[in-house]
Design a protein around this nucleic acid. Sequence first.
RNA 1: UGCCCGAUAGUAUAAAGGUAGUACAACUGAUUUUGGUUCAGUUUGUCUAGGUUCGAAUCCUGGUCGGGCAACCA
Length: 556
Amino acid sequence: MSEERSLNFIEEIIEEDIRSGKHGGRVHTRFPPEPNGYLHIGHAKSICLNFGLAKKYNGLTNLRFDDTNPEKEETEYVDSIKEDVRWLGFEWANELYASDYFEQLYEFALKLIKKGRAYVDDSTAEEIASQKGTPTEPGTPSPYRDRSVEENLRLFAEMREGKYTDGEKVLRARIDLASPNMHMRDPLMYRIRHAEHHRTGNTWCIYPMYDFAHGQSDSIERITHSVCTLEFIPHRALYDWFIEELEIFPSRQYEFARLNMTYTLMSKRRLLQLVNEGFVNGWDDPRMPTISALRRRGYTAASIRDFCERIGVAKRENVIDVSLLEFCVREDLNKTAWRRMAVLDPVKLVITNYPEGQHELLEGENNPEEEGGGGSRQIPFSKELWIERDDFMENPTKKYFRLGPGLMVRLKHAYIIKCEDFVKDESGNITEIRCTYVPESKSGSDTSGIHVKGTIHWVSVPHAAKAEVRLYDRLFLSEEPAAEGRDFREHINPESLQVLPDVYMEADLARAEQGRGYQFIRKGYFTLDKDSKPGALVFNRTVTLKDTWAKAAKKG
RNA sequence: UGCCCGAUAGUAUAAAGGUAGUACAACUGAUUUUGGUUCAGUUUGUCUAGGUUCGAAUCCUGGUCGGGCAACCA
């Protein structure tokens, strides 16, 4: 069937399950975010995995919000999560919430109490912690561990009724205080929280813990393959224990290694810190690794899906080189982005032998990668142009292919020019470059016979549109800003955002559409920012072009 | 010190006892009206010690190294 013979370990498990007829060959996964923050590229890996698995094996995927902690969860996050999953190109079978199951979960708890498998504990958090023992020493029983079923039933009902304050009592599973797996030492099932929940409001004052909600939710939804990250491995024994004791649908949990990426952070807690402490301007600041930030920056959904495909799925801890993500977006944008010219750091160039007041329209294809150039646009040309300041060198080095005194270069889509002279101000800055052009070298009908090594981009001075351009670089200077013993705040790149307020570009760009990628020739991929307004254009740089010249120049 | 997971080029990921391959990165060169793209090529790898086997990255045993686990978070 599958041509690409190599499967990841989860696909192998699923194919084996299908072969053996488990669940009648049915595959049903879920993506279970907690709505307490925005989704990041690490979640994209999980989304692509869960939805991708279901798609590949003709199954379904639920979107389930794991909302069992009313103090951290908000509707704003629910909305952003839905938007991000959709944008990535996935369709969920059902939109569900763990809070939908609160009543059912309560019934499950009752069942365990009646079986003598759960008890109400009056111990404080500190007492319970010390009762757990240590990895090498067994725990000790709580003095309340052997309450009667009747008493437990009454107390638990009273907990629900609101008779107790936060922390006064908890419901615990009665398992094994000597288990080498700490999670099996009578874990908490319910705690009291007199807090308003984003969906259930004040209906409840007791809330189930993750371990007493997640597996049961999977089971209620008849999830066949519950895929999560490595840190939940020790929870699996508990996951299975509850399912067995409750005698409910046997969902199974499988764990893979979460995504880590160089030069960024991947923990919601730290990302929240970046937002709250003002290191970035919100969750969708284009320097963030969140899906919303990547989208705003100009990353395409296709490129993120491709990235998730390429990084693979395994159990080994990994740190992916961010250059792979950049490669993926360049590869996608190279095929789809319209080429335009924009001069980021302008210096004036005057063509002395071009008639004053004359201008003409030249043609430039939208995308040379597309068949037939993907259509074209007209580019106004005139006597005065803006060119890039670093496309001129007063004393050019031997391998410099651009402009310098006496040197010739091609103006993209236009003519070959020769630098005759240049003007400097008192402080030695070049203020104007004076050239002559070769009339018979016009792009497309060049009869000059002249061959030049370099081609530069330009914008006609009287026709230029002006825009603000935001250049983004990695947020951190260190490959692993959150590595052990580090305060990531000390590794922030002070130059991660560079704002260019006055960039000249082709007037055509005034009609740029949001969500579309543009390649500013020789400069990189850009996209219109949401801050942009007619007459006050704002572009974000998605990623630079690969620049082997800059690399070579840096080396000397 | 208990339990659990893992270990293949710089980074990831394949090879289900039979030629260690692929991608990114790096480096050469060719092409190019983007120092982009494309194309061709190069460099670099099975943690370790034993064992089983005609044959081990793969199976077994010991070790080493890395990570996780003792929240009324998920």
